[in-house]
Design a protein around this nucleic acid. Structure first.
Lengths: 144, 144
DNA sequence: TTATTAGATTGTAATCTTTATAATTAGTCT
DNA sequence: AGACTAATTATAAAGATTACAATCTAATAA
């Protein structure tokens, strides 16, 4: 079972002159294998047994590179640390205010907002970000 | 020229049992007089000449109170510190990726997104947040 | 295959933002 | 005015992220 997302990312990075190191590859692998929305520290702790000498700075450096190349999206929500999401298909985020859980959901891309916003502000629009906040089913049942 | 927004905020806070101190009043005043989207530190520095003994903690404490009461909105965007926005009418934010400038723009509230998201995820929806990123006119002319 | 070189990693310290804590001060209510 | 309780202050601490210099290594080509 090949990991196409991983392969694509590696290829795309190589093509733009980014070297592939074992640590870098492992971070990409982690992001593309079901681990959604981790923090930098979560990635670091998940990989430190494979790379006992890896520095936290390496995780941050790579996440910055990936962000700059459009491979991952960085999210700051609330007061916690940043979370990083491998960019695949366009989706938005539903965030639980109780436990911080993040769930993806699909919705038609809001192109009209970008058009209107560009017209009103004079900005050259690049992208937008939408997050919906609420209470997840687990936290709903806990409160009752 | 009275500041209605300020008066409303003070009244609403008083009614919910929040005491009005000179520092607290000054922070509200700052937020309602044309200073949009400041950081906690910007507020602190703007007021320290009037309140030489004021602590940074006071600014943070008050911003938390205001946020809990729905008087201000806290925004974390990018890697910088939180910015705080006095809540008036519903609006969204356009953010410049070049210089960090934030401009408000109005757009019909995206109720439908909340409904769909609630249906897809099972969350109980509370609110949403939308930000558009791009390049402001100033930065556009600089780049050329 | 080896040498080269620019980029990547490491380890650590430093920075920056935000929160915690305890003591003091000061609004608000009666 | 007095009492009660919240707010402020000052400081320390925590936590996340970045800076930096030294070392290492992936990619390239001889």
């Amino acid at each position: 079972m090949a990991n196409e997302m991983l392969d694509d990312a590696v290829r795309s990075l190589r093509e733009s002159g980014v070297r592939m190191t074992p640590q870098r590859h492992a971070i990409l692998e982690y992001l593309t294998t079901g681990h959604t929305h981790p923090t930098a520290d979560e990635i670091y702790r998940a990989l430190e047994h494979r790379f006992p000498n890896m520095s936290v700075a390496t995780v941050y450096n790579n996440l910055r590179v990936f962000r700059e190349k459009g491979i991952v999206e960085e999210m700051n929500y609330g007061d916690a640390s940043s979370r990083f999401d491998f960019v695949t298909t366009r989706h938005y985020h539903m965030i639980c205010e109780g436990c911080g859980k993040i769930v993806d959901f699909n919705y038609p891309v809001l192109d009209d907002v970008e058009t209107v916003a560009a017209h009103l502000t004079g900005f050259k629009v690049d992208r937008h970000r939408l997050e919906v906040y609420g209470t997840c089913p687990d936290c709903q049942s806990k409160v009752q």
